[in-house]
């Protein structure tokens, strides 16, 4: 396959960015999208040009590092996958592919296609945990948890923190990310204990960091590589509001 790539290039956070156009040739349809970028970068280096910076790591869809906005879609034109799981067979020979970084005020560009997502860490630091120290905990089987609850908790816990929800949301809202953590822990007796405090602290931090207000478009759910449902956002709203009304 031969392809034309329009890629956002930006030297650093302060520099002004712009699109550059490149061509790649002889790409196998079985190649992954990131391998295609590897090939481009190898070519650019040989031409004495700077390679395109992009975040990636595990390349099997679980670390949440890869974060490209491809042809107008977070993680590209396939459902429930990360960029690294996207394969070139989803494109046609001769296609023009536009590749952009995540766009959100809370995710500043570091270089080219790399953005900073430390805002997510900060939200979780505000309360995305169960306050137990190492040691001194009860036996794992001392509290039975109904299987449906454990399953629903796991559904939400599947979040990989990639930020596609924020990237695709027209409001730049991080509600699905926050909801996934709040909901996952609220569904378990271990997490229920401090559910109210957690919901309040995480929402407050999310707001403080400049994420937008959720307007229930559901775009986050449509682009989430792990298919996390906005029903978890409803639970976050419930947890938050009931906590506030109890105050």
């Amino acid at each position: 396959m031969n392809l034309t790539l329009k890629i956002w290039r930006q030297k650093n956070a302060k520099a002004k960015g712009a699109f550059e156009t490149y061509n790649v040739e002889g790409i196998s349809p079985d190649t992954s999208f990131l391998e295609m970028l590897d090939i481009l970068n190898n070519k650019l280096i040989h031409e004495g040009k700077e390679p395109v910076a992009f975040d990636h790591d595990c390349r099997e869809g679980i670390c949440g590092m890869c974060s490209l906005y491809i042809n107008g879609k977070a993680h590209g034109p396939d459902s429930e996958i990360t960029t690294c799981q996207l394969h070139m067979r989803k494109f046609k020979d001769g296609d023009t592919i536009t590749i952009e970084p995540w766009r959100s005020a809370a995710f500043p560009v570091v270089r080219d296609l790399v953005v900073e997502r430390q805002a997510f860490d900060k939200i979780l630091q505000a309360g995305g945990f169960v306050s137990v120290n190492t040691g001194g905990v009860p036996d794992a089987n001392s509290i039975p948890i109904p299987k449906p609850d454990a399953d629903e908790s796991m559904d939400a816990a599947a979040c990989i923190g990639c930020g596609a929800c924020v990237a695709t949301c027209k409001n730049g809202s991080a509600m699905l990310f926050v909801a996934a953590r709040v909901s996952s822990l609220a569904k378990l007796p271990q997490g229920k204990v401090e559910a109210a405090r957690r919901a309040k602290a995480m929402v407050a931090k999310m707001d403080e960091l400049g994420f937008g207000n959720c307007t229930n478009t559901g775009a986050c759910q449509a682009e989430c590589p792990k298919g996390i449902s906005i029903a978890h956002i409803a639970r976050l709203n419930r947890e938050f509001l009931s906590a506030k009304f109890k105050d």
């Binding site: 137990v132 190492t134 905990v137 794992a140 454990a150 908790s153 996952s184 822990l185 271990q190 997490g191």
Partner: peptide
């Protein structure tokens, strides 16, 4: 035990 207490959904 530790992981269950942390809210790991085994």
């Amino acid at each position: 035990d530790q992981c269950v207490a942390q809210g790991v959904p085994f």
